[in-house]
């Protein structure tokens, strides 16, 4: 039956494709195992943090954002929004563990607020631009991991490494997304080939401390598109008066 050249060729092709498929799925299984390791680290960290964060109270979260790309956002004073800043958020967690209201401030290096928004009664209001989001946003879960645990489940070929960052030992999980087509991104329309995501955990405590995305351009150069470093996450019975005043503006 398979004595003809065509028949043998077909069998050969099928066998090759079969091995490719086996290799593909074997690798995929290995990735899931690695992803599980990261998810466990994130969940363990969240569980440790959650002990200090009680329902019916406020959570104060501060993190720094740095980027080598311009944000493209023009502020009302016609200045370009800084691409590196400190984000300071206050979230009220209701008795069901959902975020019911909050105030979100972006501050420059001198501590000045350059953009602020607030959430209450299912509505977001941007106080800086005077824009009210008409969407109906019901209270949402307080999931404070920047989407790391979800994103890593889709990652391929996760690599684990040890790095020293600012003199501290970190365990780093990284993975690369190769763009299907040469894609122009950012304000300068640079051509990006791959996007690498790196998630950093403190080696001693296991705490999640940083996440960043790095572009590799067609010319081989690398640009840090977004680097987020957690500064603090703390629980408080009450929010400061100035935060409560901001909330009143949402109505």
């Amino acid at each position: 039956m398979f004595q003809s050249k065509k028949g043998r060729l077909l069998i050969g092709l099928t066998v090759i494709l079969f091995f490719i498929a086996v290799a593909y799925y074997t690798t995929a299984r290995a990735q899931v195992a690695n992803a599980d390791e990261v998810v466990k680290m994130v969940n363990d960290w969240k569980a440790r943090k959650a002990k200090d964060l009680k329902h019916g109270q406020w959570v104060h979260m501060v993190y720094s954002v740095t980027s080598e790309n311009r944000s493209g956002v023009i502020l009302p004073d016609e200045q370009m929004m800084p691409s590196s800043y400190t984000q300071e958020d206050w979230y009220y967690i209701n008795k069901d563990g959902l975020v019911e209201k909050g105030v979100f401030s972006m501050k420059d290096n001198d501590g000045n607020i350059f953009q602020q928004s607030a959430y209450q009664n299912n509505t977001y209001f941007n106080l800086t631009f005077g824009e009210r989001m008409v969407e109906d946003q019901p209270p949402y879960p307080f999931n404070f991991d920047f989407g790391v645990a979800s994103n890593i489940m889709d990652a391929k070929a996760i690599k684990k490494s040890d790095e020293k960052v600012k003199g501290k030992s970190r365990v780093v999980y990284s993975y690369i997304e190769t763009l299907k087509l040469p894609t122009q991104l950012g304000q300068d329309d640079v051509i990006v080939d791959t996007i690498m995501t790196k998630d950093y955990f403190d080696k001693e405590s296991g705490d999640f401390v940083q996440t960043e995305t790095i572009w590799t351009l067609a010319n081989g150069a690398q640009i840090v598109d977004n680097s987020v470093e957690i500064i603090s996450i703390d629980g408080f019975p009450d929010a400061p008066d100035e935060i409560l005043k901001v909330l009143e503006e949402v109505k």
Partner: peptide, 9 residues
């Protein structure tokens, strides 16, 4: 936007 704040544009 994130939480109503414009992050990039």
């Amino acid at each position: 936007l994130c939480n109503g704040s414009i992050k990039s544009q």
